[in-house]
Amino acid sequence: MTVLPANPMSPRPFRILKVVRELSDTFTLLLQPETGGAFSFRPGQFNMLYVFGAGEVPISISGEPAEDRQLVHTIRSVGPVTQALGRLKAGDVVGVRGPFGTPWPVEDAFGDDLAIIAGGVGLAPLRPAIYQALANRPRFGKLIIMYGARTPQDILFRKELEKWRSRFDVNVHVTVDHATGQWAGRVGVVTKVVAKAGFDPLHTTALVCGPEVMMRYAVEALEERGVAASKVHVSMERNMKCGVGLCGHCQWGPHFVCRDGPVFRFSDVAALFPVREL
């Protein structure tokens, strides 16, 4: 279990330094605490972002964990609050509660190959883990990033993926579900990449984040390769509202996803995954 912030129910004002348009419906906010001071978090954790009067949404942190002067969130506009966030400009202020939840266990993977499997906007919560892995690159075997997006136009953090791919010590596989002839990359599901990627299944830790359906099949592909369920970690999405396991909304079986997750060891939740409407 992780340590909660000092006053977890009160939004702390953060000023927007910069808004970066990532995709047609996705943007990144660079934030700084209004009152100064630092913001520390661990990769995989999330904040509740508050837009004055409009409401609050859980958003994972997508920035560099070693950088505590600037808070970074990558957001897809899908509902009223995320759309309200999308209308904000540099200089505006948002409320931040957090960080909440369990982190990606990047340190536990030292000595293993690290397989990072992301789908769609699920790359955002994994980016801090990638930064942490790169900062500790010599401690891992292979570092393999497998990323699936809907179309080439939906590839998040494209420049960074290209930069990582150009390194000799990182393997990056990007695949899209739908493409036209302009796309010279791979077309097909991310699970196919998992089936073929060159990690050593007996010594691999996998971090998986994406739509729940994609995660189910990705985990299946990892298991078929022989990766132990105890070395697979998934990040769950449920209706997080309070962040401290108090309001009940994010329950998934016996777990409060906001507190016991969002990152779960797959072997701890394997029995819950197949149950519908849990």
Partner: peptide, 12 residues
């Protein structure tokens, strides 16, 4: 809480 708009931000 009650929040009051203050400039481009707010006060709680």
């Amino acid at each position: 809480f009650l929040a009051e708009r203050a400039g481009r931000g707010f006060r709680l």
